[in-house]
Amino acid sequence: MPPHVAVVRFPGTNCEFDVVEAVESLGGTAAVVFHDADTLVGADAVVVAGGFAHGDYLRPGAIARFSPVMAAVAEFAAEGGPVIGICNGFQVLTEAGLLPGALQKNAGLKFRCEMVSLRVETTDSALTSAADDGQIVRIPINHFEGNYTCSNETLAELRSEDRVVLRYIDNPNGSVDGIAGVCNAGRNVVGLMPHPERACHELLGSTDGRPLITSILDSGTV
């Protein structure tokens, strides 16, 4: 059986079918799960896709956090299941307390929509097990609130526990320590602002997202 990925969609999510396409192109199966679902039946991995969940009103992720499906996502994560939050999905996971820190408005107040270079800082995570340590990947970003912020204590913890998963080569948004992606202590929950699902086909200008999506599929079959 190929690994099956549940792709979470809130009202306002807009990247769910890109994730489904990328997963299927790499040999997995995927199904979109709406925010009012209370189970993730049969999922081997979960991706919280990007977009503007619940319009991003109040703060990105602030309302999505209370959607029924998030209880199932939290339970799945607590059991060690791989959960990946991409862009708005990363914001949702921080608001839900599944990942540390918060995503603030970009320094310079610019919406950044461009290809960026990232360094894979650890291969010990649900998102990077199939990548190479130190590998540079070109993946697009598309966000206004991707400026990763956390307390000094949290930053020290992330560094000492090797939980910074991806860093920008040229920091586009003011993120502390150039952080583009982090994982939880169990290394099964990962959030990142860049969109690996948009870098899985030659026609999109980069295939560097493939090892990351493949890692999600691999971690779902363990």
Partner: peptide, 8 residues
């Protein structure tokens, strides 16, 4: 729980 994100 809702109106603020206590992290920031």
């Amino acid at each position: 729980r809702f109106l603020t994100n206590p992290v920031i």
